[in-house]
Every structure is written in structure tokens, then in C-alpha cells.
Nucleic acid binder design. Structure first.
Length: 431
DNA sequence: TCTGGGGTCCTAGGACCC
DNA sequence: TCTGGGGTCCTAGGACCC
């Protein structure tokens, strides 16, 4: 049944921006063009983007910053806090260009997209992707790698190869199956898309060490020892496309989470209330933007998981009788839930809000008990959202978000670049 | 009061991704 | 001293029903 959809060989391209966050910072700062650069996660916690030079020095993806600080110092690595407003803006520009190369496109992440080229009339795929890469660079300054293959999983493999090549593109659809097999033999099973730390442990224990060994593994064994996703990965390595292509531009979100670690540990209820308030309001704004309503709410607070002996994680779920997008209602629920789970005397490290069971507002409206109330609330929420859009996040707020709380996120190395700010335009000297 | 099996639905938790 | 955030999907197991 898994295979029935696949009667025609597909042509799928995966476009992936190279060291995306680093590339974004480099656009506005030519001085860091050929030097090692890293970008840190929120709170300056971990390394989440590395330039080629930084990779060569041995900085690993996801490593805590404090553990590599000595390497940073010794090698003069340029360090940046993440600036998601900037990355989001540049991502949109790249994706807009990709739209011109295929009408069937899946925005997979901030720096990646799948393009289905199956039904397009293209004389030469290789020329097409070389052109695509060139245009993206010319229009945005962002370098990308492009891999093409008959399935998403193989397109990931192709992209993995493309990243190591000078021209930055790889097309597996023109390679023989023998060539593909020998390529897969050289790829560690952990590097196959869909194989994470747990699966790779299981595979290696059972002598499946590379992509080829996974490809030829008996499917009954895979089914018995993993799950449907494991089975799909194997099918895809065999050229059978069975992972859905999600080209719905606005596939609605099913859940929405806003959470943050604190810049320093938090012990008081008041500070937790401020952070939960801020997260709740931000999440509410997000779902209103998407015309969605919330059916249940979860809030959580936890101490640091790295302090194993003292780790606690507290949470509470509340189901709403009527789905809503009203910040007042949601905030009320969140703060009440917080007061119920709060335990004194703990050093909290993180707090967050989940909105679950999101549903489309249009479809739900008719079920509301009081249309009038919801209209009133809708107008008020719109004023709130418009003001915050115009004057910046949290300009207008409903509760106490503690404007200068010492618990707020650390961002010590931000480039503070804003693409809507003229001051940030680079200066060009003509002579 | 004791007995069985099979179905659905829901949820918590885990694994994975970037 | 200092270890990100936001998603999706799948499964096992419990509750409930007949």
C-alpha cells in the first residue's frame, strides 16, 4: 500500500542555503567574508551556524558556546547572536525567487525548500539548477547548494554531495544505479535524512553502517524493528517516492509554541508570570495572524535538565470550552494555571506556552455562543496587533511583561542589522 | 459476581527534523 | 558559572464501549 502512489519517476530538487545564518551576517559585513564565523542560538547558548572555516577548526553543530569559547578566542572566530528578523527577511527573498523556478514548492525550513520539477518542461536539468543557483546568488547574495533526485530522501543525499562540490549542485537522476549505490556506501547511515541518534544506534548494532546497507535491508526487519517512517526511508533510498510533497503554501499549523530559556535562573512567581505573559501574548498574536483559534492550552516551567539531581518539569493543560483567539481570555487561563503549578524555592531555567488543537476561525465562528462578544474582542485584538506591528513587539500589552527583567534573553553579540533600516545599508566606495 | 475479546478514541511521550 | 526553539508524526497504553 505504501508504494501504490508511485507510478511515475519524480524529479525533486532540494535547495539549501549554505551556512544560512552566517551567510546573512556576511551580507552586511564584508569584513567577515573570509574569516571563521559562528552564529549562536537564543541566549547565546549553542552554536547553530558555522562558516566553512569554523567547521574546519573543529567547531561542532549544536555545541554549547562555553565549551568552544577557547577555540573562538584562539582562532579569532567572529561570533554573532542570532537575529531572526534578518534571517526571516532574507529567507522570504530566497523563497520568492524559487517560486519562479517551480510552481510546486514545499518550504521545508527557514533555509531549505523542495521543488517538484516532474511536470515541468526542462531541456537540461543540470543547466536549470546551475542557473537557479546563479540567480539566487545574484539577487540575494546568499550561496545555495542544490541536489536533484527521484525522491526527497535521495534529494537530501544529492544535496549532501552538492555541498562538497565546487559548483554546488548534484543531479542523481542522471546517475546509474551502480553509481548511486557506491555513493550511498560512502555515506554514514547517521547522515541519511530520517535517521537520528536512536535509529542510527539500532542500525549500527545490526551492521547497517551506511546508506547502501540501509537501502538493501530486508523490509520485514525494518518494519519489525522500527516504524512506518523507517520503512519509508528505505523505500525512498530505493527510488520509490513515498514521503508526501507538501506544496500547500499555507498548510495551517496544528500547534503553536512560544518558550524561552532565561538569561539567568528565575525563582519568583512574579518573574515567571512576566515571562508566561509575554509568551502567551506572542503566541496569541501568531495564531491571530493565521486566523486560527485555540482549543487547549499548556503552560510549563522547568529547571535546567543539565542539573539532573534537581531537575523538575511542571506543566498544566487546560481545555477551553469554546475555542478562542482572545489574549485576555488566554492570558487569564495561563496565569491561573501557572499559580497552580508553581513551587517555591526552585531555580527555573525555562518557561513556555503551547496552544494546541488549533482550528480555522472561519469554520468555527458559527458555533460561538455569543457572536457579539467575539466581534468586540476581535476589534480590540486588531487594535493590539496593529499597534505592535507598527511600533514593535510588546509596544502595547495586556498584562505585566516586565520590560527590563534581568531574566530576559542574552544577546551579547547581535549585529543589530535590520533590513528595514537605512542606517544598515552597506557603503560602497567607487574608487 | 464472574467471565472474554475486540474495537475506537485520546493522550503522553519519544523520535525526528532544521 | 554558562547547554536553543518550534514544529510534525508515530506508537503504546489506558479508558471506554459493546
Amino acid at each position: 500500500m505504501l508504494y501504490t502512489k508511485c507510478n511515475k519517476k519524480k524529479i525533486i530538487a532540494l535547495v539549501d542555503c549554505n551556512s544560512f545564518y552566517v551567510s546573512c551576517e556576511r551580507l552586511f559585513n564584508p569584513k567577515i567574508k573570509n574569516v571563521p564565523v559562528v552564529v549562536l542560538s537564543n541566549n547565546d547558548g549553542c552554536v547553530i551556524s558555522r562558516s566553512t572555516e569554523a567547521k574546519q577548526i573543529g567547531i561542532k553543530m549544536g555545541e554549547p558556546y562555553f565549551k568552544v569559547k577557547h577555540l573562538v578566542k584562539k582562532n579569532n572566530i567572529a561570533v554573532f547572536s542570532s537575529n531572526y528578523a534578518l534571517y526571516g527577511d532574507l529567507s522570504r527573498r530566497v523563497m520568492n525567487i524559487l517560486k519562479k523556478f517551480s510552481s510546486c514548492i514545499e518550504y521545508y525550513s527557514i533555509d531549505e525548500a523542495f521543488l517538484d520539477l516532474t511536470d515541468m518542461i526542462i531541456e537540461n536539468i543540470n543547466d536549470y539548477i546551475v542557473e537557479m543557483k546563479k540567480i539566487i546568488y545574484q539577487y540575494t547574495g546568499i550561496p545555495v547548494s542544490i541536489g536533484v533526485a527521484s525522491t526527497k530522501t535521495l534529494a537530501k543525499v544529492a544535496n549532501f554531495l552538492a555541498k562538497k562540490k565546487d559548483n554546488g549542485v548534484e543531479n542523481l537522476t542522471i546517475r546509474s544505479s551502480n553509481e548511486i549505490n557506491s555513493i550511498l556506501q560512502k555515506i554514514d547511515v547517521r547522515d541519511i535524512w530520517g535517521v537520528g541518534s536512536q535509529l542510527s544506534k539500532l542500525y549500527k548494532k545490526n551492521n547497517i553502517n551506511n546508506g547502501y546497507e540501509l537501502k538493501i535491508k530486508n523490509t520485514a526487519w525494518i518494519r519489525k524493528n522500527t516504524n512506518i517512517i523507517g520503512l519509508k526511508t528505505v523505500a525512498e533510498l530505493n527510488g520509490i517516492s513515498c514521503i508526501d510533497f507538501n506544496d500547500g503554501e499555507n498548510a495551517p499549523r496544528k500547534s503553536c509554541c512560544v518558550s524561552r530559556s532565561f538569561g539567568k535562573k528565575v525563582e519568583t512567581l512574579q518573574e515567571l508570570e512576566q515571562s508566561i505573559t509575554s509568551h502567551c501574548l506572542n503566541a496569541a498574536e501568531k495564531i491571530r495572524q493565521d486566523q486560527q483559534l485555540v482549543k487547549s492550552v499548556v503552560i510549563f516551567i522547568k529547571t535546567s535538565p543539565f542539573d539532573q539531581s534537581n531537575f523538575i518539569s511542571l506543566s498544566k493543560k487546560v481545555d477551553l470550552p469554546i475555542a478562542t483567539d482572545d489574549s485576555f481570555v488566554l492570558l487569564d487561563i495561563c496565569l491561573k494555571a501557572l499559580s497552580e503549578i508553581f513551587i517555591k524555592g526552585q531555580k527555573y531555567q525555562k518557561a513556555g506556552v503551547f496552544f494546541l488543537g488549533l482550528q480555522n476561525k472561519e469554520n468555527y465562528q458559527a458555533n460561538l455562543f455569543s457572536i457579539k462578544d467575539s466581534e468586540k474582542s476581535g476589534k480590540l485584538m486588531k487594535i493590539l496587533d496593529d499597534a505592535n506591528l507598527k511600533f514593535g513587539r510588546n509596544f502595547m500589552s495586556v498584562g505585566d511583561v516586565g520590560f527590563r527583567g534581568s531574566w530576559k534573553m542574552r544577546r551579547d553579540y547581535s549585529s543589530r542589522i535590520d533590513t528595514s533600516d537605512f542606517e544598515c545599508l552597506p557603503t560602497v566606495n567607487s574608487g
